[in-house]
Amino acid sequence: MTIASHTDTSPRRSPLALPGWSWNWLGVVPFALFALLFLILPTIQIVFGAFRTPEGDITLRNIAGLMEPNILHAAWVSIKLSLISALGGCIIGLGLAIAVIRGGLPSVLRDATMTFSGVASNFAGVPLAFAFIATLGRLGIVTLLLRDLLGINLSALGFNLISFTGLTLAYLYFQIPLMLLIIAPALDGLKREWREAAESLGAEGIEYWRRVALPVLWPSLLGTFALLFANAFGAVATAMALTGSSLSIIPIILFAQIRGDVLQDPHLGYAIAFGMIAITGIANLIYIILRSRAERWLK
């Protein structure tokens, strides 16, 4: 009782405070200012710029400029790359997570896998490209070993690291671990009793996964998929270092636009950037809608 009465009279409110008014919000001003200056305003600048002429008039010409075949093609490749690497990351990551966490493997392997995933999910970017060049490039160890030991010529089989397939393969290197990191806690959240209840009611193995585990995991899976999609869609460094600019994906085109600085139409850059925000935004919107449906049974 003494504690309660004490806290009630403790100097929580500043003496300046008027009834019903509090200065508490001042505490978030630094954060708000930072977010405004370095996150929100730059984004708004892009969005507005996409709909303005260099003279400041409102226009849809920039957006119309996106309809050029090379940009549309790059956008399609980007979306495909992001979808496939996100899907692959989700499925393979889930498989690995199940194997490591629920598969009856020694728990040491689980810890090691999670630690490694922490590293590998941050191993995106330039070094990753180098690693894949050293593995599957023209002089890569796998390429050479396959050629010398098994007589398999990868490039004759149509495989080229500097390609869509190669890039997808490289992206999976950070997508799968990211999936593992996010889904592991969700898998831990599956109660043993659910499985046992299902089994005693006749559902075991696949049936249990189909009827209970996957539906329970579904919101997490969706969320991770959206995150992986955005992750791949915005990635530049790996693709740049791996393919130079020979594979045209949207971020590389934007990169070239910004770098080039000599654009026929500088506002096309705005339009491309806006398009990128729009696509990741839509992806997240879809995710939010799907999630709210999938989560009816959650609080």
Binding site: E193, E196, A197, S200, V216, W218, W297, L298
Partner: peptide
């Protein structure tokens, strides 16, 4: 038939 201390109802159903 099995009933658990923690109920263990399937939350998605």
């Amino acid at each position: 038939g099995l009933v658990f201390q923690s109920y263990a109802l399937f939350p998605n159903l």
